[in-house]
Amino acid sequence: MSDRLWFNGEMLDRAQVHVDPSDRGLLLGDGVFETMRVQAGRIAHLPRHLARLYAGLEILMIPPPPRAGVEDALHRVIAENTMTEGSLRLTLTRGCGPRGLLPPEGVSPTLLIVPFPPSVARAPDAHLVTSRMRRDENSPLSRVKTLNYLPNILALMEARQRGGNEAVLLNIAGRVAEASASNLLIQRDGMLLTPPVTDGALPGVARSVLLDMRLVRERTLTLADLPGAEAVVLINSMMVREAVTIDGVALRREPSTAARIRAALAS
């Protein structure tokens, strides 16, 4: 795979891409992103990714680029890099502006699409740590995949410091919201359950696929629900991952559950 990127209306080599120092995405985290899996040369669940992207732009009041142009750019990146497997990272910022918080009128968004090769190994089992960081379930930003991921970054760093490799984030009310970069599912009495968006869960693309297939139901969860579950699984667009401990306590495992989810998301 070559290394050709889409940047503001044209295909460029990586070395040719220069982000303006006044870009609000760089300075303020003012923007959104999507990470999309490429499989057999096609973007998995592309309409769902675009729907979430444009919903986020509406919430952030960022002028949306034409959808057809974004789709064309994504396909151009796949074609020029001769991609069959891997992923695309789409980043869209509000654009450039003067110093200060309030964006100027008539700002032009920045669009960057970067290809990545496929991972060579499956993600390791998750050793969960309950983070001190909280998701604000009352904020509309909890529903947007913004460029400001500091709470998630700090949660994952905290998990590593405490001997884990993944974090569980609770919401302000103390209920389970999600993991640092994935939605969380538990299996109870053979049924897969996941926290609702109203509890602070990001509306993940893989999550939405499973909900529409009626393989998963939304249910408010607490930390006490995890140790007694038949399985705990983390999902996002790139992976399905079993959780094996939480805060040092062993979790029950049911490998067929993760296999069933992988099969459903690959269909």
Rank of each mutant, 00 (worst) to 15 (best):
M1A: 10
S2I: 12
R4K: 14
G9S: 07
G9E: 05
G9T: 07
E10I: 01
E10K: 15
E10G: 14
L12W: 07
D13E: 15
R14V: 13
V19Y: 08
V19I: 15
S22D: 12
G29R: 04
G29F: 02
G29I: 02
D30F: 07
G31L: 11
E34W: 06
Q39K: 12
Q39C: 09
Q39Y: 13
A40T: 09
G41Q: 11
L50H: 03
A51D: 06
R52H: 08
L53Q: 05
G56A: 11
E58G: 13
P65G: 11
R67C: 06
A68E: 15
G69I: 03
V70G: 05
H75K: 11
R76L: 13
R76S: 14
A79D: 14
T84E: 15
T84P: 01
E85F: 04
G86P: 12
S87G: 13
S87A: 14
S87K: 12
L88V: 11
L90Y: 08
L90R: 05
L92A: 10
C96M: 14
G97W: 05
P98Y: 04
G100Q: 01
L102I: 15
P103K: 03
P104F: 06
G106H: 09
P109H: 12
P109L: 12
L112E: 03
P115L: 12
P117S: 13
S119F: 13
A121N: 11
A121Y: 08
R122P: 09
D125I: 05
V129Y: 11
T130F: 01
M133N: 09
R135T: 09
D136T: 07
E137K: 00
E137A: 12
N138G: 13
L141M: 11
S142F: 05
S142A: 15
V144M: 02
K145N: 02
P151V: 09
I153Q: 01
L154G: 00
M157C: 12
E158H: 02
E158C: 06
A159L: 03
R160H: 13
G164W: 11
A167K: 02
I172L: 15
I172V: 15
I172F: 08
G174I: 07
V176S: 00
V176R: 00
S180Y: 04
S180P: 06
L185D: 04
L185P: 05
R188Y: 08
D189W: 05
D189K: 11
M191E: 13
L192Q: 01
L192G: 01
L193Q: 01
P196E: 04
A201N: 01
L202S: 03
P203V: 07
A206Y: 00
R207D: 06
S208K: 07
S208D: 15
L210I: 01
R214C: 08
R219L: 03
L221W: 00
L221T: 01
L221V: 07
A224L: 11
L226D: 07
P227K: 06
G228V: 15
E230T: 07
E230P: 06
V233A: 07
N236Q: 09
M238G: 00
M239P: 00
R241S: 03
E242K: 03
V244F: 11
T245Y: 06
G248W: 05
A250M: 10
R252L: 10
R252C: 11
I261N: 02
A263K: 12
A263Q: 13
